[in-house]
Nucleic acid binder design. Structure first.
Length: 828
DNA sequence: CACTCATTCCTTTTT
DNA sequence: GGAATGAGTG
């Protein structure tokens, strides 16, 4: 992006990097020494400050390789790097600068230091498991423990484990903290899952952080090597860091993660940038106190607040400001617009989601035309809380011929066909990777079905070896049919053909990465499988399958591209440009160069590349890369279409005009996020993020009825609508427009009182009334008896068709019951 | 062993 | 309303 105005990269002094910055921005850039907290409000030029700061450091004589900048997304990292290069020029000045995501940095540190740091079950060719791999593994673990997936749903077990890892709790620590029965069982699953990961020489996303944090904490030589390499640390989106990331940052910075005391005397050059008001990943383990307590952790830290907003007009910004002021757990910082008053925010109440979609479509068209000059489709966006809301909008936009794209669309590397191909590649790179093997062993169907697999897998477990080893001797496994054994032999032979039986040498071994990928796709039968499904020649086939074939071809080109850019020496070192030679650039991050490392008897490690066939090394690097690219990286509003996305995906982006839909209780404060103030305030921040994405125009809609899971339900307008100041918003009620003239005909300017207030009052009055109809005596808090489960208390209840209640039973825990069948009896 | 039909279960998801 | 499992049949 180049909204960085007229800066001339050819200039040489440090001062030109400051051109055009405000006073506060300037302070954030030039306060280079010691800890610094930058509170960057929305649209305050945060990215510009970060990139200028890096350029300023370099201009002041700091070697670029001493600077480490950490982000959350690859996109942010790439943009940051590009903008720094634009500031410094392509020359040697920026050489060795490390801009990386947390996860990518950790992946490389682990690959580099796993052997030194004594991390059992982790070699340099470890696999990185994503969500679906994790799910497969956790299911297998639950099954191996003879537990049922109904009592322990894999997804929720996984999320428990994930949050434990985010808090740096390993299975043992988790067990120690496990209070109730379910938690103790989960701690067993956790332990089994960990063992399985280590056995497969694999880590999950959370492990990347957990293991790196532990390595930095426990292994002084590695810690020292990192601290020696990087003396200037910069972290973006700090409000979204979790406990593990916090510890990693603290250890890298050199404060040891110890509050106040331990840091005495040291003044690490750590600069964190973020906005507590935009913290929206608490549910994923992000800990907002990391940023709120920064000054406690580093006493005497400099603080710069960037509140000047260059993005949104006044009405929009002040609406957002008024809203966020309702949060209690927050540090206030003033928001000031530099873009003039602009138009008021439009709040419209609609009858149902179809009317809402129609209005949004009309509004988008009008916003496009009304702009001066007229806007492009790509300047427009629609935001919603949950993905399910996009469907109706999509249908309408399609019907009206408005081009749109969904920011979530399955990422390239997430597609089934691509994941299958990558599964083969993972098995090639890591013969212990049983999860990937399970995925692909019978895709396409080659006669090794579930029964044979189970037997071979059980045999492998008995022998304490990997499934692939057992597959090689499938004939000797009892009860495996000769047909399956033959199929297994053929499969193994194909695999060996690609790897030269593990040697990666010999005439038949692919000479390049792209050739390997191509052969895997062809010889595995994947290509043939999808071609058949697509109907060769295109007749009668499925268009989706045709695109699968294309995607496989695309994978080959992605491998070729990677190969072209790949430099083995850089892979061995750290930092994309930490290359060999040059002016004082350390070629490789090395353990054992410091005094302390020598004290602890740290042995210098051989470079990673040593002894590894080049093709294998390249494959590992390639797989690491593709494992770490995520959906959000693909969000690129550069196309000629309206962007539809969740509020979470919208963070960090901006649009000339935006529509925020579904402002209803239960939808924008989401029903699952109203348990406590912390959750509710995060919902409010989510709304804040949505509002502050809009530059010129903002539409907010709320629908009186919404179809949720197939049934139409009466809604209550979101409390957040009440919190928007009426001097900055224009409210209109169109929900009755087609229901006759009895009420508020033409009353869309609020002459007869505020429609939001009226509706909210009316609806909440209704919900407070005594429930009627069946089960009227069952209210939240009531004590009930169940024929099997005994006594309990009602935690929550939903009425209407299929009425359910969640009941906390004294003996058997919480259960959700269908009232129609449960025969609950109220007691007392 | 593979494919099809029914039953279940639903937030958000930077890596 | 819909995707994503699991059971059951060919």
């Amino acid at each position: 992006m180049t909204n960085d105005d007229g800066y001339d990269p050819s200039g040489g002094g440090a001062d030109d990097v400051l051109d055009g910055l405000t006073e506060a921005q300037r302070r954030a850039v030039t306060t280079t020494e010691g800890p610094l907290l930058v509170l960057a409000g929305p649209g305050s030029g945060k990215t510009r400050v970060i990139t200028r700061r890096i350029a300023y450091l370099v201009r002041c004589g700091v070697p670029a390789w001493q600077i480490l900048a950490l982000t959350f997304t690859n996109k942010a990292a790439a943009e940051m790097k590009a903008r720094v290069v634009a500031l410094l020029g392509e020359g040697p000045a920026g050489r060795g600068l490390t801009v990386s995501t947390f996860h990518a940095l950790c992946a490389r540190l682990l690959r580099r230091f796993a052997p030194v740091a004594n991390l059992p079950g982790l070699s340099t060719s470890y696999s990185i498991y994503d969500d679906s791999d994790q799910l497969a593994l956790i299911k297998a673990t639950i099954a191996a423990l003879n537990l049922s997936t109904t009592n322990f749903p894999p997804r929720s077990v996984l999320s428990r484990i994930s949050s434990a890892k985010n808090d740096l709790l390993d299975a043992k620590a988790f067990e120690a903290s496990a209070g109730d029965f379910a938690s103790r069982v989960i701690s067993k699953i956790y332990a089994g899952y960990e063992a399985a990961l280590r056995k497969a020489d694999a880590v999950d996303f959370d492990d990347l952080l957990l293991l790196t944090g532990r390595m930095l904490r426990d292994c002084a030589p590695v810690r020292e090597a990192c601290r020696e390499r990087w003396s200037y640390l910069l972290i973006d989106e700090y409000q979204d860091t979790n406990r593990a990331q916090f510890v990693i940052a603290s250890l890298l910075a050199g404060s040891g993660g110890a509050p106040t005391e331990g840091a005495a005397g040291t003044k690490p050059n750590i600069c964190v940038v973020g906005d507590p008001d935009q913290s929206i990943y608490g549910w994923r383990g992000a800990d907002i106190t990391n940023i709120l307590d920064f000054e406690k952790q580093y006493p005497g830290a400099a603080v710069v607040a960037l509140g000047d907003n260059f993005r949104s007009t006044e009405h929009i910004l002040l609406s957002a400001d008024a809203l966020i002021r309702h949060n209690k757990l927050r540090k206030h910082k003033p928001l000031v617009s530099f873009r003039g008053a602009g138009e008021k925010v439009e709040v419209v109440l609609l009858r149902d989601e179809h009317q809402e979609a129609a209005l949004v479509a009309d509004w988008l068209k009008a916003a496009k035309e009304d702009g001066a000059p007229p806007l492009a489709w790509k300047d427009l966006a629609v935001f919603y809380r949950t993905n399910a809301l996009s469907r109706v909008i999509e249908e309408r936009l399609r019907g009206e011929g408005v081009p749109y794209r969904i920011a979530r669309g399955t990422a390239f590397y997430d597609r089934e066909e691509v994941r299958n191909a990558l599964g083969y590649l993972r098995v090639v790179a890591n013969a212990a990777d049983d999860v990937s093997l399970a995925r692909i062993v019978n895709v396409p169907a080659r006669g090794i079905g579930d029964t044979s697999w189970d037997k071979i897998e059980a045999a492998a477990r008995r022998e304490g070896t990997t499934v692939l080893v057992m597959l090689r001797q499938a004939g000797t496994v009892p009860d495996v049919s000769s047909r399956a054994a033959n199929a297994a032999a053929k499969f193994v032979a194909t695999l060996d053909g690609w790897t030269g039986a593990g040697s990666f040498m010999g005439a038949d071994t692919p000479a390049s990465l792209s050739e390997l990928v191509e052969r895997v796709i062809r010889e595995s039968g994947l290509e043939g499988m999808y071609k058949t499904a697509a109907g060769v020649g295109g007749t009668g086939g499925d268009a989706a399958d045709a695109s699968r074939v294309d995607n496989l071809a695309e994978l080959v080109s992605s491998a070729a591209e990677f190969e072209a850019a790949y430099v083995p020496e850089e892979d061995a070192g750290l930092g994309p440009e930490g290359g060999a030679g040059g002016t004082g650039v350390p070629p490789v991050l090395r353990v054992g160069s410091s005094a302390e490392a020598a004290d602890t008897g740290g042995t210098p490690v051989p470079p990673v590349g040593r002894g590894v066939p080049p093709l294998l090394a390249m494959l590992r690097a390639y797989l690491e890369r593709v494992s770490l690219v995520a959906d959000a990286d693909a969000v690129d509003p550069a196309q000629g279409a309206v962007t539809l996305m969740t509020l979470h995906a919208a963070k960090g982006l901006e649009f000339r005009a935006a529509a925020l839909i579904g402002l209803e209780e239960g939808c924008l404060p989401h029903s699952r996020a109203q348990q406590n103030d912390r959750e509710l305030e995060e919902e409010r921040r989510l709304c804040f993020v949505g509002i502050t994405r809009a530059m010129d125009r903002l539409l907010i809609t709320s629908s009186k009825y919404r179809t949720i899971r197939g049934i139409s339900e009466r809604t209550i307008p979101s409390r957040f609508l009440d919190e928007l100041p009426r001097e900055h918003v224009r409210v209109s009620d169109q929900s009755d427009a087609f229901e006759g003239l009895d009420e508020s005909w033409g009353g869309d300017s609020g002459m007869t009182g505020d429609p939001v207030a009226k509706l909210r009052a009316r609806a909440s009055g209704m919900s407070e009334a005594k429930p009627t109809g069946p089960f009227a005596d069952l209210v939240v808090g009531a004590t009930v008896r169940h024929p099997q489960f005994g006594m309990g208390t009602i935690r929550s209840i939903t009425r209407g068709m299929n009425a359910r209640a969640t009941v906390k039973f004294r003996d058997v825990g919480e259960k959700t019951l269908l009232l129609e069948y449960a025969r609950l009896v109220k007691v007392g």
